[in-house]
Protein backbone atom coordinates (compact mmCIF):
# COMPACT_ATOMS: atom_id res chain seq x y z
CA UNK A 1 0.00 0.00 0.00
CA UNK A 2 1.30 3.45 -0.87
CA UNK A 3 1.84 5.90 1.94
CA UNK A 4 0.38 8.67 -0.21
CA UNK A 5 -1.62 8.35 -3.41
CA UNK A 6 -2.46 11.42 -5.42
CA UNK A 7 -4.83 10.54 -8.26
CA UNK A 8 -5.65 13.03 -11.04
CA UNK A 9 -5.73 15.89 -8.59
CA UNK A 10 -6.46 19.46 -9.71
CA UNK A 11 -6.83 22.53 -7.56
CA UNK A 12 -8.48 25.68 -8.78
CA UNK A 13 -8.64 28.62 -6.36
CA UNK A 14 -11.55 31.07 -6.62
CA UNK A 15 -13.18 29.05 -9.37
CA UNK A 16 -15.39 31.09 -11.69
CA UNK A 17 -14.23 34.42 -10.30
CA UNK A 18 -11.95 37.01 -11.85
CA UNK A 19 -9.04 35.96 -9.63
CA UNK A 20 -9.30 32.28 -10.56
CA UNK A 21 -5.96 30.44 -10.27
CA UNK A 22 -5.33 27.01 -11.70
CA UNK A 23 -2.74 26.00 -9.11
CA UNK A 24 -2.53 22.23 -9.69
CA UNK A 25 -3.47 20.43 -12.89
CA UNK A 26 -4.03 16.71 -13.09
CA UNK A 27 -1.25 15.54 -10.78
CA UNK A 28 -0.71 11.80 -10.37
CA UNK A 29 1.82 10.56 -7.84
CA UNK A 30 2.19 7.53 -5.61
CA UNK A 31 4.64 7.64 -2.71
CA UNK A 32 5.79 4.39 -1.17
CA UNK A 33 5.92 3.85 2.53
CA UNK A 34 9.34 4.89 3.90
CA UNK A 35 10.16 6.88 0.80
CA UNK A 36 11.69 10.37 0.83
CA UNK A 37 10.18 12.45 -1.99
CA UNK A 38 11.09 16.06 -2.72
CA UNK A 39 9.03 18.57 -4.70
CA UNK A 40 11.02 21.22 -6.52
CA UNK A 41 10.06 23.83 -9.10
CA UNK A 42 9.84 27.56 -9.77
CA UNK A 43 7.97 29.82 -7.39
CA UNK A 44 4.21 29.55 -7.78
CA UNK A 45 4.23 26.12 -9.40
CA UNK A 46 2.01 24.72 -6.66
CA UNK A 47 4.41 22.86 -4.36
CA UNK A 48 2.90 24.23 -1.15
CA UNK A 49 -0.58 23.75 -2.54
CA UNK A 50 0.13 20.09 -3.29
CA UNK A 51 1.51 19.59 0.21
CA UNK A 52 -1.54 21.25 1.75
CA UNK A 53 -3.79 19.03 -0.33
CA UNK A 54 -2.03 15.95 1.04
CA UNK A 55 -2.40 17.44 4.53
CA UNK A 56 -6.10 18.02 3.86
CA UNK A 57 -5.66 21.67 4.79
CA UNK A 58 -7.11 22.24 1.31
CA UNK A 59 -9.45 19.99 -0.60
CA UNK A 60 -8.90 19.12 -4.26
CA UNK A 61 -11.17 20.58 -6.93
CA UNK A 62 -10.87 17.29 -8.81
CA UNK A 63 -9.34 13.90 -8.11
CA UNK A 64 -8.66 12.16 -4.83
CA UNK A 65 -5.88 11.76 -2.32
CA UNK A 66 -5.39 8.84 0.03
CA UNK A 67 -2.95 8.73 2.92
CA UNK A 68 -2.17 5.30 4.39
CA UNK A 69 -5.19 3.95 2.53
CA UNK A 70 -7.61 6.47 4.05
CA UNK A 71 -8.96 9.72 2.67
CA UNK A 72 -6.61 12.65 3.35
CA UNK A 73 -9.32 14.16 5.56
CA UNK A 74 -9.55 11.01 7.68
CA UNK A 75 -5.75 10.83 7.92
CA UNK A 76 -5.73 14.41 9.25
CA UNK A 77 -8.41 13.62 11.80
CA UNK A 78 -6.43 10.52 12.84
CA UNK A 79 -3.29 12.65 13.13
CA UNK A 80 -1.37 10.41 10.78
CA UNK A 81 1.10 13.05 9.66
CA UNK A 82 3.39 15.68 11.15
CA UNK A 83 3.95 19.00 9.45
CA UNK A 84 6.72 21.62 9.43
CA UNK A 85 6.72 24.94 7.61
CA UNK A 86 9.28 27.45 6.43
CA UNK A 87 8.55 29.57 9.47
CA UNK A 88 9.11 27.62 12.66
CA UNK A 89 5.70 28.78 13.94
CA UNK A 90 6.49 28.12 17.59
CA UNK A 91 4.11 29.52 20.18
CA UNK A 92 6.03 32.20 22.05
CA UNK A 93 3.94 31.77 25.22
CA UNK A 94 4.96 28.13 25.57
CA UNK A 95 8.37 26.97 26.64
CA UNK A 96 10.37 24.98 24.11
CA UNK A 97 9.45 21.68 25.78
CA UNK A 98 5.77 22.68 25.91
CA UNK A 99 5.86 23.54 22.21
CA UNK A 100 7.06 20.05 21.43
CA UNK A 101 4.41 18.62 23.75
CA UNK A 102 1.52 20.53 22.17
CA UNK A 103 0.47 17.80 19.71
CA UNK A 104 0.81 15.24 22.49
CA UNK A 105 -1.43 17.33 24.76
CA UNK A 106 -4.04 17.51 22.03
CA UNK A 107 -3.84 13.75 21.65
CA UNK A 108 -4.43 13.27 25.36
CA UNK A 109 -1.02 11.93 26.43
CA UNK A 110 -0.47 12.17 30.17
CA UNK A 111 2.00 14.61 31.62
CA UNK A 112 4.77 12.15 32.48
CA UNK A 113 4.75 10.60 29.02
CA UNK A 114 4.76 14.03 27.42
CA UNK A 115 7.74 15.12 29.50
CA UNK A 116 9.66 12.00 28.66
CA UNK A 117 8.89 12.36 24.98
CA UNK A 118 9.84 16.04 24.73
CA UNK A 119 13.13 15.29 26.51
CA UNK A 120 13.84 12.54 23.95
CA UNK A 121 13.00 14.85 21.06
CA UNK A 122 15.25 17.59 22.46
CA UNK A 123 18.07 15.03 22.55
CA UNK A 124 17.29 14.09 18.98
CA UNK A 125 17.64 17.67 17.70
CA UNK A 126 20.64 18.19 19.99
CA UNK A 127 19.14 20.92 22.15
CA UNK A 128 18.64 19.00 25.41
CA UNK A 129 19.28 21.95 27.74
CA UNK A 130 16.75 24.31 26.15
CA UNK A 131 13.49 22.73 27.27
CA UNK A 132 12.61 25.44 29.76
CA UNK A 133 13.56 28.36 27.55
CA UNK A 134 11.07 30.41 25.58
CA UNK A 135 11.33 30.33 21.77
CA UNK A 136 12.37 34.00 21.60
CA UNK A 137 15.58 33.07 23.41
CA UNK A 138 16.61 30.72 20.59
CA UNK A 139 18.23 31.51 17.24
CA UNK A 140 16.24 30.97 14.05
CA UNK A 141 18.04 27.72 13.32
CA UNK A 142 17.41 26.41 16.82
CA UNK A 143 13.73 27.34 16.54
CA UNK A 144 13.51 25.44 13.30
CA UNK A 145 14.99 22.37 14.96
CA UNK A 146 12.36 22.63 17.69
CA UNK A 147 9.64 22.85 15.03
CA UNK A 148 11.01 19.66 13.49
CA UNK A 149 11.14 17.99 16.90
CA UNK A 150 7.51 18.99 17.35
CA UNK A 151 6.51 17.52 13.98
CA UNK A 152 8.19 14.24 14.91
CA UNK A 153 7.08 14.08 18.55
CA UNK A 154 4.13 11.77 18.06
CA UNK A 155 5.92 9.41 15.68
CA UNK A 156 3.85 10.21 12.62
CA UNK A 157 4.24 7.73 9.79
CA UNK A 158 4.21 10.64 7.33
CA UNK A 159 6.12 13.89 7.55
CA UNK A 160 5.15 16.88 5.37
CA UNK A 161 7.76 19.63 5.22
CA UNK A 162 7.42 22.91 3.33
CA UNK A 163 10.85 24.53 2.91
CA UNK A 164 11.70 23.86 6.56
CA UNK A 165 15.34 24.87 6.13
CA UNK A 166 14.70 27.88 3.90
CA UNK A 167 15.60 30.40 6.57
CA UNK A 168 18.84 28.73 7.71
CA UNK A 169 22.44 29.55 6.87
CA UNK A 170 24.30 27.08 4.67
CA UNK A 171 26.18 25.24 7.43
CA UNK A 172 23.18 24.89 9.74
CA UNK A 173 21.22 23.79 6.74
CA UNK A 174 23.62 20.97 5.88
CA UNK A 175 23.69 19.95 9.51
CA UNK A 176 19.88 19.85 9.60
CA UNK A 177 19.80 17.79 6.41
CA UNK A 178 22.11 15.25 7.99
CA UNK A 179 19.94 15.19 11.13
CA UNK A 180 16.78 14.75 9.10
CA UNK A 181 18.33 11.87 7.15
CA UNK A 182 19.41 10.23 10.39
CA UNK A 183 15.91 10.61 11.87
CA UNK A 184 14.35 9.34 8.65
CA UNK A 185 16.56 6.26 8.65
CA UNK A 186 15.92 5.61 12.35
CA UNK A 187 12.16 6.03 12.23
CA UNK A 188 11.22 4.70 8.78
CA UNK A 189 8.97 7.70 8.26
CA UNK A 190 7.68 8.65 4.81
CA UNK A 191 8.70 12.22 3.97
CA UNK A 192 7.30 14.67 1.43
CA UNK A 193 9.64 17.64 1.33
CA UNK A 194 9.44 20.94 -0.55
CA UNK A 195 12.58 22.91 -1.38
CA UNK A 196 14.10 25.40 -3.80
CA UNK A 197 17.58 24.01 -3.32
CA UNK A 198 18.80 21.48 -5.88
CA UNK A 199 21.61 19.98 -3.73
CA UNK A 200 19.18 19.71 -0.82
CA UNK A 201 16.68 17.85 -2.99
CA UNK A 202 19.35 15.46 -4.24
CA UNK A 203 21.05 14.72 -0.93
CA UNK A 204 17.76 13.97 0.82
CA UNK A 205 15.59 12.15 -1.66
CA UNK A 206 14.81 8.82 -3.19
CA UNK A 207 12.93 10.71 -5.88
CA UNK A 208 12.89 14.35 -6.92
CA UNK A 209 9.61 15.55 -8.42
CA UNK A 210 10.17 18.51 -10.73
CA UNK A 211 7.10 20.67 -11.23
CA UNK A 212 6.25 23.28 -13.84
CA UNK A 213 4.02 26.32 -13.30
CA UNK A 214 0.80 27.77 -14.74
CA UNK A 215 -0.87 25.41 -14.16
CA UNK A 216 1.21 23.37 -11.70
CA UNK A 217 2.05 19.96 -13.13
CA UNK A 218 4.65 17.27 -12.65
CA UNK A 219 7.10 17.64 -15.51
CA UNK A 220 9.64 15.00 -14.53
CA UNK A 221 10.39 12.54 -11.76
CA UNK A 222 14.08 11.89 -11.18
CA UNK A 223 15.15 8.85 -9.15
CA UNK A 224 18.24 9.38 -6.99
CA UNK A 225 20.33 6.43 -5.93
CA UNK A 226 22.97 7.47 -3.46
CA UNK A 227 22.57 4.52 -1.09
CA UNK A 228 23.24 5.25 2.55
CA UNK A 229 24.41 8.83 2.96
CA UNK A 230 27.65 9.68 4.68
CA UNK A 231 29.82 12.77 5.10
CA UNK A 232 31.40 11.99 1.73
CA UNK A 233 28.14 11.73 -0.19
CA UNK A 234 28.24 15.43 -1.05
CA UNK A 235 31.49 14.80 -2.94
CA UNK A 236 30.26 11.62 -4.62
CA UNK A 237 30.09 11.73 -8.47
CA UNK A 238 26.59 10.22 -8.23
CA UNK A 239 25.55 13.24 -6.17
CA UNK A 240 26.79 15.64 -8.86
CA UNK A 241 25.07 13.60 -11.52
CA UNK A 242 21.81 13.93 -9.61
CA UNK A 243 22.33 17.67 -9.21
CA UNK A 244 22.96 18.05 -12.94
CA UNK A 245 19.87 16.05 -13.87
CA UNK A 246 17.62 18.08 -11.59
CA UNK A 247 19.14 21.33 -12.81
CA UNK A 248 18.55 20.39 -16.43
CA UNK A 249 14.97 19.39 -15.68
CA UNK A 250 14.41 22.76 -13.98
CA UNK A 251 15.97 24.61 -16.91
CA UNK A 252 13.59 22.88 -19.26
CA UNK A 253 10.67 23.85 -17.03
CA UNK A 254 11.68 27.48 -16.83
CA UNK A 255 12.37 27.58 -20.57
CA UNK A 256 16.01 28.65 -20.15
Amino acid sequence: MSAVEIRNVSKIFNRGRANEVHAIDDVDLAIESGEFVTLIGPSGCGKSTLLRLVASLLSPSEGAITVAGKSAEQARLDQDYGMAFQRAGLFEWRTVAKNIELPLELMGWNRADRRRRSAEMLELVKLPEFGDHHPAELSGGMQQRIAIARSLAFNPSLLLMDEPFGALDEMTREHMQTELLRIWEETATTVVFVTHSIPEAVILSNRVVVMSPRPGKISEIIPIDLGERSDDTREDPEFFKGVTRVREALRAVEGL
Partner: peptide, 26 residues
Protein backbone atom coordinates in the same frame (compact mmCIF):
# COMPACT_ATOMS: atom_id res chain seq x y z
CA UNK B 1 0.27 33.63 11.95
CA UNK B 2 -1.51 31.59 9.25
CA UNK B 3 0.91 28.68 9.60
CA UNK B 4 0.11 28.44 13.32
CA UNK B 5 -3.56 27.97 12.50
CA UNK B 6 -2.68 25.44 9.79
CA UNK B 7 -0.51 23.60 12.27
CA UNK B 8 -3.42 23.35 14.71
CA UNK B 9 -5.70 22.19 11.91
CA UNK B 10 -3.14 19.54 10.99
CA UNK B 11 -3.59 18.24 14.55
CA UNK B 12 -7.34 18.16 13.89
CA UNK B 13 -7.81 20.76 16.64
CA UNK B 14 -11.33 22.16 16.95
CA UNK B 15 -12.15 25.88 16.62
CA UNK B 16 -12.48 26.21 20.37
CA UNK B 17 -9.15 24.49 20.97
CA UNK B 18 -7.54 26.90 18.51
CA UNK B 19 -9.22 29.75 20.37
CA UNK B 20 -7.90 28.55 23.72
CA UNK B 21 -4.41 27.49 22.69
CA UNK B 22 -3.57 30.07 20.04
CA UNK B 23 -5.90 33.02 19.68
CA UNK B 24 -6.36 33.93 23.34
CA UNK B 25 -2.66 33.77 24.30
CA UNK B 26 -1.87 35.68 21.12
Amino acid sequence: EASQIELMESYAASKSTIMREVRIPN
